[in-house]
């Protein structure tokens, strides 16, 4: 099959994204205090994200024999929590834009945005509970246990990254970065959606192994994140975050770790000084210099190639995870979602 000529991803993202939005709408009430809570917390979920996480959940459930509609509530829960964490991320990163519009705290101020994020995170468990109710106590407890672990891993990953920002002199290795991504990104972006989807499956009676989809989700999520980081350095206004925003923030990406290991002499001193500055004190000239340095040492190309290697490993893990499942539109979607990562420009 020529995967470049047939789009096996976008139609499924559209279909399952619409299912998820419909389910989410039932859990995003339009009541008072509307202006200060319910409207702000419903803002990000209605801005039109990629809907990759909920679609992965629904597709996995469907691949394991459960009709897509039956997984919509679980998918809605995942998307709601994702958006709640985005609100908090934007505050912590002091970001100005999200999905092409002003961030929530820019629009409403940090206190209202923070509270909306808290509320959305709490409310996100409700659709999952409503779904769990249908499954019986045993599976319900497993879902809640997985939810707790996913939330814990995500928070730990975020803490690692925030800690590095608070300690700019700390030397971060590639493995440190990968562990952070595994926790911060992969659990919510891929591991958890797949695990919940499979738990909802009927063909496997909801039984999944303790390690199910962790390897697949890690390689897929890490490939996705690294490509995302590369896009940030190449982005313009089409890309939803500020162009080179990661450099302004001195975010520890694979490229930054790479260039830090290769710079010598005065260049290394300039890099160290750059890292010790606050975001507001960093100059456009320094950011441009660092970007040039990354290109000169090949850090961006290497990161891109590495993300491709991780994607290759993800496809290998996909073959293992779904080897007993018949090929369907859903399994093709999940597999091709990995390569779709590299075709997107945002």
């Amino acid at each position: 099959m020529n995967i470049n000529s047939i789009d096996t991803v976008t139609p499924v993202l559209d279909e399952y994204g619409a299912l998820t939005r419909k389910a989410m709408a039932e859990y995003l009430p339009k009541r008072e205090p509307l202006d200060y809570l319910y409207a702000p917390l419903a803002d990000y979920p209605t801005r039109g994200g990629k809907m990759m996480r909920p679609s992965l959940c629904i597709a996995t459930a469907s691949a394991f024999g459960t009709p897509p509609k039956e997984a919509a509530k679980a998918a809605a829960a995942i998307e709601m929590l994702h958006n709640a964490l985005l609100i908090h991320d934007d505050i912590e990163d002091e970001s100005d834009e999200r999905r092409g519009q002003q961030t929530l705290h820019k629009l409403h101020g940090t206190p209202i945005a923070l509270n909306a994020g808290d509320a959305l995170a709490m409310m996100s468990i409700k659709p999952m509970l409503d779904k769990a109710k249908e499954l019986g106590p045993h599976l319900a407890m497993h879902i809640l246990s997985d939810w707790e672990r996913m939330a814990r891993e995500s928070a730990e990953g975020q803490a690692m990254e925030l800690g590095w920002r608070a300690n700019p002199a700390k030397v971060v290795t590639r493995n440190d970065y990968l562990e952070m991504v595994l926790k911060k990104t992969c659990w919510l972006a891929a591991i958890f959606p797949c695990r919940i989807g499979a738990t909802l499956g009927t063909s496997n009676k909801g039984l999944i192994a303790p390690d199910a989809f962790i390897r697949f989700g890690f390689f897929f999520g890490a490939a996705f994140q690294i490509h995302d980081d590369v896009l940030n350095l190449k982005g313009d206004k089409v890309y939803g975050k500020e162009s080179c925003g990661d450099l302004w923030e001195a975010k520890r990406t694979l490229m930054l770790i790479d260039v830090a290991e290769r710079l010598k002499g005065d260049d290394k001193k300039r890099y160290d000084a750059f890292m010790m500055q606050s975001r507001d004190d960093r100059s456009e000239a320094d950011v441009a210099w660092l970007l040039d340095a990354m290109n000169e040492v090949g850090a961006i190309d290497r990161a891109f190639q590495y993300s491709q290697s991780l994607a290759s490993a993800a496809i290998h893990e996909f073959s293992r995870a779904f080897k007993d499942i018949p090929d369907t539109r859903d399994t093709v979607f999940i597999r091709d979602l990995i390569t779709w990562t590299f075709r997107r420009d945002h």
């Binding site: 499979a198 496997n204 009676k205 039984l207 999944i208 192994a209 303790p210 390690d211 199910a212 989809f213 962790i214 390897r215 697949f216 893990e317 293992r320 995870a321 080897k323 007993d324």
Partner: peptide, 10 residues
């Protein structure tokens, strides 16, 4: 195998 289809969840 990352999926436990039977009782083999541990």
């Amino acid at each position: 195998h990352p999926l436990g289809f039977d009782e083999d969840t541990g």
